[in-house]
């Protein structure tokens, strides 16, 4: 797939991004290989206007059914722990009550595309996971051991999501996720 470019008059983004979708087949065992097989690249974009054009054609997260995920990652980073951009990284996880996913996802994506996190190249991508009881937002960064960066990301996340103060946020390294096989 060729690298996307902003069209005439469009507003370029600091980074190009790719949108991925995955859905777990009911009853199938979770594993890294089935996760990889289920991951579908939907589109790439390079400008604000291209993002909105794609977004208007995507089903909103709250309207997805079953065990589904949207992933928006910088172009060239596959949304997998094993990718070289992710293998020393981790993610902030925010668990959402049902009904909040679409609004929170839009807030998170706009903050990421607009470079509101102010952590340079650290952000890898964002994921919204639709599950039965709750939905889960995650923001992945490159360096799990960099506590200054991860704290800054947490503070910005809290601000842009505008969630109740008692919302629980957890940081998890991809290494730990791999060990406990928890996050497919």
């Amino acid at each position: 797939r060729p690298t996307p470019k902003p069209g005439p008059g469009e507003h370029p983004l600091q980074f190009n991004y790719a949108v991925w979708f995955s859905r777990k087949a009911p009853g199938k065992q979770s594993s890294a290989s089935s996760y990889n097989q289920n991951l579908k690249l939907i589109t790439t974009f390079a400008s604000v206007e291209q993002w909105w054009n794609h977004y208007s054609h995507l089903v909103r997260p709250s309207d997805l059914t079953g065990h589904s995920d949207y992933h928006i990652f910088k172009e060239g980073i596959r949304p997998m722990w094993e990718d070289s951009a992710n293998n020393k990284g981790g993610k902030w996880i925010v668990r959402l009550k049902k009904g909040l996913a679409s609004r929170c996802w839009e807030n998170l994506v706009l903050a990421m595309l607009g470079e509101q996190f102010m952590v340079g190249e650290e952000i890898c991508g964002a994921v919204i996971s639709i599950r039965y009881q709750e939905d889960i937002l995650a923001l992945w960064n490159r360096t799990a051991s960099d506590s200054v960066t991860t704290s800054r990301i947490r503070d910005t996340l809290k601000r842009v999501l505008n969630l109740p103060p008692n919302t629980i946020m957890e940081y998890k390294t991809h290494n730990d996720s791999m060990k406990d096989n928890s996050s497919f």
């Binding site: 069209g7 008059g9 469009e10 507003h11 370029p12 983004l13 600091q14 604000v48 206007e49 909105w52 054009n53 208007s56 807030n107 706009l110 903050a111 595309l113 607009g114 470079e115 509101q116 102010m118 340079g120 842009v160």
Partner: peptide
Amino acid sequence: GSKIFYERSFLLQCRNSPLTK
């Protein structure tokens, strides 16, 4: 570091631009 920053309000304005189909 990053050079291209956009505020949320600006991104939302672009949603209604003629360039956004």
